[in-house]
Design a protein around this nucleic acid. Structure first.
Length: 592
RNA sequence: GCUGGCGUAGCUCAGUCGGUAGAGCAUCUGAUUUGUAAUCAGACGGUCGGGGGUUCGAUUCCCUUCGCCAGCUCCA
C-alpha cells in the first residue's frame, strides 16, 4: 500500500507532491479551488466533475453562457484570493441520504445524480471555506498549498462524455509546484505549436488540404512526395528482405465482398455510401484485406508455401466525422503500409514475433524509440467464435511476453474480426499516435474460406495476420514532421544540399558541382540568384536544408566548396568529392 | 456530428463605433555582384468565405450556409 493510499483515510494529506500521485492530488485540489472561484463569481453554475488530468486539471460546469477569456481572468484572480485565504480542506463522511439532501438543497443536480449511482452508504465530501464538493479525495492540507497555476482554455464537453447529454462548459487549467515548472510547461506548449505539422507542412511546402477537394484528403506537394517516396522505397526494400511479396489491389469492389467480409455489417459507420454501376453496387475500400485474400485464393496453396506474406501500400477511405479530422493525423483517405500473412497454426507465434522485430527496427530507423504498447481485446460488435477470439488473443499475449515488452490491455478496442497489438508513438504533444497495428484473425479466413492443403491432403483453414507498421503514411508523416520539427535527417530531407554562389562569376563552376551531386543521386538544388549570400543562406535555413554549399572565388580557385550545416556549423572548405562521400554515408546510414 | 471561437491579398496579420480596405513577406520588373539568417526601388495583387436580410449605403449589424481551429478519452 502506498503512502498516499494510506493517507486517503485521513482528512487531507501532506506529502511529496512531486510523485505522480502527489501531483494529481495537488492538481485535483486546484480544480476544487477553481470550482469555488466559479461558484463565487457565477452562483448559478452547477458543478459536474473536475478531475486531475495528464498535464493539469479541468472542471465542468453547467452555466447559462460559455465562459469568455475575460471570465477566465476573473476566475484566476478569484483563485488567487482563495489561495491567500488558505482555507483547510476538510474531509467529512456523511450518509448517502444526507449527501443527497445537502446537494439537492444547493441545486447541484449533477452531484445528486452521481451520488445516486454510488453503492456506498457513506459518502465523503470535502469542504474548503464555504465551498463543499462531493469528492473521494484526498486533497492537500489547505488552499494555500497551491503555488503556481494557470487557466488555459475553455471548451464544450458533454455531461459524462455522451453527445446525447447536455453540453457543459469545461475550463482547463494546470498547476505546478513552482512558478518555474509552470513557465517551463507553458514554454513547452509554445514549442508544441511551433512544431505543429500543419504549420510546418505549409511553411515547408510539404502538403495541403484543399476545401474544394474536401476535408481529410491530402494533397502531397513535391517536397512531401519526395519524402514519401523515400519512405516507400525503404519500406519496399525491407519488405522484400523480410520475405514479403508486393501486390496491388483496386480501390473499390462490389458491395457483396464487404458483405462477405462482415465490413458491411460491422464497419459500416466508417464506410462511404455505395455507388451503383450498371445495377451493381460497388463500395470504395475501407481496408485491403479482401483483395489480398482473393490473391491468395487465386490458386490452391500448399502447406509448404506458408507463410505467404502479401504487402501493399494500399490506399483506403474511411468516413470520419468532420469534427475529428486533424491535419495528417486523422484523415479520410490514407495509405496503409499494409500486409497480410497467411500461415498455419504452428507458425502463428513465430510470425508475430517476426513482425514485432520488424516493427521495432522500422521505427528505430525513423528515430522513434518511445512508444506505448496496447493489447486490444474483443469489442462489442464482433464476428467469429469466442474460442477463436481467445486463441488469437493468447497468441498476441504470448508474443509480447516472449519479447519481454511491457503492454497494457485495452479492453474492447479490437477490430471486429480479431484482437490486436497496437504500438503508439509519442509525439511532442505527449499524445500517443497509433501507428503500428498487428491483428490476428481466424474469422475472415473462415468467412472467405481461406485454406491450404496440408500433409493429410485435406484443406485446412489458414490463419491471417493483418499488420501495418507505420500505420498510415499520412499519419506517420505527420508524426515525423513534428518529431523532427521539420528538420528531417539527411536521407529524408527533400532538399539535401543547396548550392549557392557569391556572385555570377562562379555560376559555371557551381553548375558542375550541382550536376555531379545530382548524378550521384543527391537531392541538390541551386541558388544562383543575384542576392547576397546572407539572404540565400537564410532561405535555405528556413527550408531546413541540411547542407549549404557556398561557392565564391576562393572555392573556385581551390577547386573546393565551403560547407555550412543547418545547425550553423561551418565545416570550412572541402573538396566536392569529400563532401559527396560524407553525405552519401549519412544517407546510407540514415543518420538522424 | 455537437458546443464555442475564427474566416480580410498566395502567406502572416492590421483596420473599418456602417461611407466598398492596408502593412510585411511572397510574386513580377529594374537596379545592385554582394563571403555565412533579410540590398534597394517600383509594379501586380482583394466583389473583406458563400447566400439572404436590415439600411440611402454592409467587409462592418442580423440570419443562414460552408470551411478552419479547440474541446467533446481521463468520471466524486
Amino acid at each position: 500500500m502506498t503512502a498516499i493510499a494510506k493517507e486517503k483515510k485521513k482528512e487531507a494529506v501532506s506529502l511529496d507532491y512531486s510523485t505522480k500521485e502527489g501531483i494529481e492530488i495537488y492538481r485535483h485540489s486546484a480544480s476544487h479551488i477553481m470550482a469555488e472561484a466559479v461558484k463565487e463569481l457565477f452562483p448559478d453554475a452547477r458543478l459536474a466533475i473536475g478531475p486531475a488530468i495528464e498535464d493539469g486539471f479541468y472542471y465542468d460546469f453547467d452555466v447559462e453562457r460559455p465562459f469568455t477569456p475575460e471570465d477566465l481572468e476573473k476566475i484566476e484572480k478569484r483563485m488567487q484570493e482563495i489561495i491567500k485565504r488558505n482555507a483547510s480542506f476538510v474531509r467529512e463522511e456523511i450518509s448517502k441520504k444526507d449527501a443527497i439532501k445537502l446537494f439537492e438543497s444547493k441545486g447541484e443536480v449533477y452531484k445528486v445524480e452521481l451520488i445516486n449511482e454510488l453503492n456506498d452508504e457513506t459518502i465523503t465530501i470535502y469542504r474548503q471555506g464555504s465551498f463543499v464538493d462531493l469528492c473521494r479525495g484526498p486533497h492537500v492540507l489547505s488552499t494555500g498549498k497551491i503555488k503556481a497555476f494557470k487557466l488555459l482554455s475553455t471548451a464544450g464537453a458533454y455531461w459524462r462524455g455522451s453527445e446525447k447529454n447536455k453540453m457543459l462548459q469545461r475550463i482547463y487549467g494546470t498547476s505546478f509546484l513552482t512558478k518555474e515548472e509552470l513557465d517551463n510547461y507553458l514554454k513547452k506548449l509554445e514549442e508544441i505549436k511551433r512544431r505543429d505539422h500543419r504549420r510546418l507542412g505549409k511553411e515547408l511546402d510539404l502538403f495541403s488540404i484543399n476545401e474544394d477537394a474536401g476535408g481529410g484528403l491530402i494533397l502531397w506537394h513535391p517536397k512531401g512526395a519526395v519524402i514519401r517516396k523515400t519512405i516507400e522505397d525503404f519500406w519496399r526494400n525491407e519488405h522484400y528482405k523480410n520475405g514479403y511479396e508486393l501486390v496491388y489491389s483496386p480501390h473499390m469492389a462490389r458491395l457483396d465482398v464487404w458483405r462477405t467480409s462482415g465490413h458491411w455489417d460491422f464497419y459500416r459507420e466508417n464506410m462511404y455510401s455505395p455507388m451503383t454501376v450498371e445495377d451493381v453496387e460497388y463500395e470504395i475500400k475501407p481496408m485491403n484485406c479482401p483483395f489480398h485474400i482473393m490473391i491468395y485464393k487465386s490458386h490452391r496453396r500448399s502447406y509448404r508455401e506458408l507463410p505467404i506474406k502479401f504487402a501493399e501500400l494500399g490506399t483506403v477511405y474511411r468516413y470520419e466525422r468532420s469534427g475529428v479530422l486533424h491535419g495528417l493525423m486523422r484523415v479520410r483517405g490514407f495509405t496503409q503500409d499494409d500486409a497480410h500473412i497467411f500461415c498455419r497454426p504452428d507458425q502463428l507465434e513465430d510470425e508475430i514475433l517476426k513482425i514485432l522485430d520488424f516493427t521495432l527496427y522500422m521505427l528505430m530507423t525513423f528515430g522513434f524509440s518511445e512508444y506505448d504498447i496496447y493489447l486490444s481485446t474483443r469489442p462489442e460488435k464482433y464476428v467469429g467464435s469466442l474460442e477463436n477470439w481467445e486463441k488469437a488473443t493468447n497468441a498476441l499475449k504470448f508474443a509480447l511476453e516472449n519479447k519481454g515488452l511491457k503492454y497494457e490491455i485495452d479492453p474492447g478496442e479490437g477490430v471486429f474480426y480479431g484482437p490486436k497489438i497496437d504500438l503508439k508513438i509519442k509525439d511532442v504533444l505527449g499524445r500517443a499516435w497509433q501507428c503500428t497495428t498487428i491483428q490476428v484473425d481466424f474469422n475472415l479466413p473462415e468467412r472467405f474460406d481461406v485454406t491450404y492443403t496440408a500433409e493429410d491432403n485435406k484443406p485446412h483453414q489458414a490463419i491471417m495476420i493483418h499488420r501495418a507498421l507505420m500505420g498510415s503514411l499520412e499519419r506517420f508523416f505527420g508524426v515525423l514532421i513534428e518529431h523532427y520539427a521539420g528538420a528531417f535527417p539527411v536521407w529524408l530531407s527533400p532538399v539535401q544540399a543547396v548550392i549557392m554562389t557569391i556572385t555570377d562569376s562562379q555560376i559555371e563552376y557551381a553548375e558542375g558541382i550541382v550536376e555531379m551531386l545530382k548524378r550521384e543521386g543527391i537531392r541538390a538544388e541551386s541558388d544562383f540568384r543575384g542576392e547576397k549570400i546572407g539572404f540565400k543562406i537564410r532561405e535555405a535555413q528556413l527550408m531546413k536544408a541540411p547542407y549549404m554549399l557556398i561557392i565564391g572565388d576562393k572555392e573556385v580557385k581551390a577547386g573546393a566548396i565551403a560547407v555550412r550545416t543547418r545547425k550553423g556549423e561551418d565545416l570550412g572548405q572541402i573538396k566536392a568529392e569529400a563532401f559527396l562521400e560524407k553525405i552519401k554515408k549519412e544517407i546510407e546510414e540514415k543518420v538522424a
